[in-house]
Design a protein around this nucleic acid. Structure first.
Lengths: 154, 154
DNA sequence: TTTCATGCAACAGTATATGTTGCATGACTT
DNA sequence: AAGTCATGCAACATATACTGTTGCATGAAA
């Protein structure tokens, strides 16, 4: 399975949005991320529906974060994406007749459930504000500067 | 991403092998699992190299488990498969220039590492013998019988 | 009215897991 | 020795899901 990078991508985009007051267009974000504007809009649409960001059309339009960064957790973002599959391994058959396969599914399922619970719990404890602080610390340490376009140049 | 069911499949096959003394051919296992013999050989090849099963060619040939079921854990089986990817979510870019993306990767990476450690730890505590016991308990409870071919009939 | 931006649907590209075919190799049977 | 049965392996085909692209409609600002 190709690895799903929507969560990684959307967090990246959100933190960049957090660094500026004005609205950011999907076109600008797409250039920065080396991808397509439609991809940006697609991954942001769930967050808009959930009220975490707002989008405006027309001149001066674009995207803005609609809630304090301290009130948005990675879990919120993950859920807004539609809570995509976490694991790339899974059961061969979900409702098997075979009793052997039922035993296998049960054992694997328990372990996967525990790991999922842990992961989502961790997501719930990390806010965008924390990620922003971490970013600023890295910026200080490296002496680099903020520039949505420059910082992503090859 | 299509979900990887090799671990699920190989455990299924191993438990069936455990139910009989004689060698089991990949052709028989494939019929039981509604798949292709080559697929069975492919997922078993790693376990053979690791010494958990043995294969014999020719008349009366096939596959046998080479170690006590109490000494084979799900972790062993997982490792023998080549320790495939566990998660279907991942970073957009593994070694990003962008400091924002570095922060995102670090946060996601920590959570994923913890979940991975928990999952592999659980795998390490479950043996094929335990799965076999669970299967026998289910068989008693249901009144069904063991038959590699019958138990998988549609 | 023009320009700019999002919204959305449909389609193309790509990566990975699984399935299939063909042939070589080796072991047992007759 | 010849025939049969089974694995070993490489190459190719298929299926699925993530990502990228195009086209057009909608709405807001200049």
């Amino acid at each position: 399975m190709k690895r799903d990078s929507k969560l990684s991508g959307i967090l990246h985009v959100l933190l960049h949005m957090a660094e500026t007051e004005s609205a950011v267009t999907s076109e600008l974000m797409a250039r920065a991320m080396h991808t397509n504007p439609v991809v940006i809009r697609r991954i942001l649409s769930g967050l808009r529906d959930a009220g975490f960001v707002r989008s405006e059309k027309g001149h001066g339009g674009g995207w803005k974060i609609a809630r304090p960064l301290t009130e948005i957790t990675l879990r919120d973002v993950y859920d807004s994406l539609g809570a995509p599959q976490l694991f790339s391994i899974g059961n061969r058959t979900e409702s098997p007749e075979c009793l052997v396969e039922q035993s296998v599914n049960a054992a694997l399922g328990r372990a996967l459930e525990e790991a999922k619970a842990l992961l989502l719990d961790r997501f719930g404890t990390v806010t965008l504000a924390q990620l922003g602080e971490d970013f600023h610390a890295r910026m200080l340490a490296s002496g680099k500067t903020i520039d949505l376009e420059q910082s992503h140049a090859i």
